[in-house]
Amino acid sequence: MPTTATFRIWRGNAQGGKFEDYATPVSEGMVVLDAVHQIQADQANDLAVRWNCKAGKCGSCSAEVNGQPRLMCMTRLNQLNLDEPVTVEPMRAFPSIKDLVTDVSWNFRVKKGIRPFKPRPPDAPDGTWRMQQADVERVQEFRKCIECFLCQDVCHVLRDHKQFDGFVGPRFLTYAAALEMHPLDEERRARELKTTHGIGYCNITKCCTKVCPESITITDNAIIPLKERVVDELYDPTVKLLRFFRRK
């Protein structure tokens, strides 16, 4: 490992910006976020970057490192070629605020638009429920999500086609899947998944699954079963017929 490395960091805001090179000392075990912090402390006090836990648990320090969507705190320098400058830039699917910080507020608005958890009545007289570990585990996979929004960043429906009004993105399809598959939940979300949440836009390219730092199998375990559920509920001919008569 060399003793110094150059980091080519994007500096700018919504109006524009450019990459600037910073050389900083590096040592064994360092992650990209360490280098960014060193640069911030010694050379660029006003360098904007989000971070909190520095342990891959809060999902704040999402960025694109050498073009790859990554958590900076979990990207070891020994995984990178330090003979060349390491580029660090903000998530490009979201509007820039400053430097490495982007405006992710859209995500918080989208979440509010998904019908919340609605449990069935308690199973026991003391107001508690009974659930089997196996049923719980299926959903726990989705609840590992740290809301880093890297899956949103990499999803071409959002990143390239800017369908922010008609598509909630992989993060919130996973969120909806966690609710739909929750052993206690009784809410119905199929119609909205099809309409306002735009599940049909996903053409299962699996880019989201590839970048998930929590290794959630987003496409196979969350989105595809959710698509099947939408089909079952909205396109099942028997159900359709029943609905037709019920409406009368």
Partner: peptide, 11 residues
């Protein structure tokens, strides 16, 4: 601190 008030971590 240098710079302006927008997301200025030094400040």
């Amino acid at each position: 601190v240098a710079g302006h008030r927008e997301f200025n971590t030094g400040w």
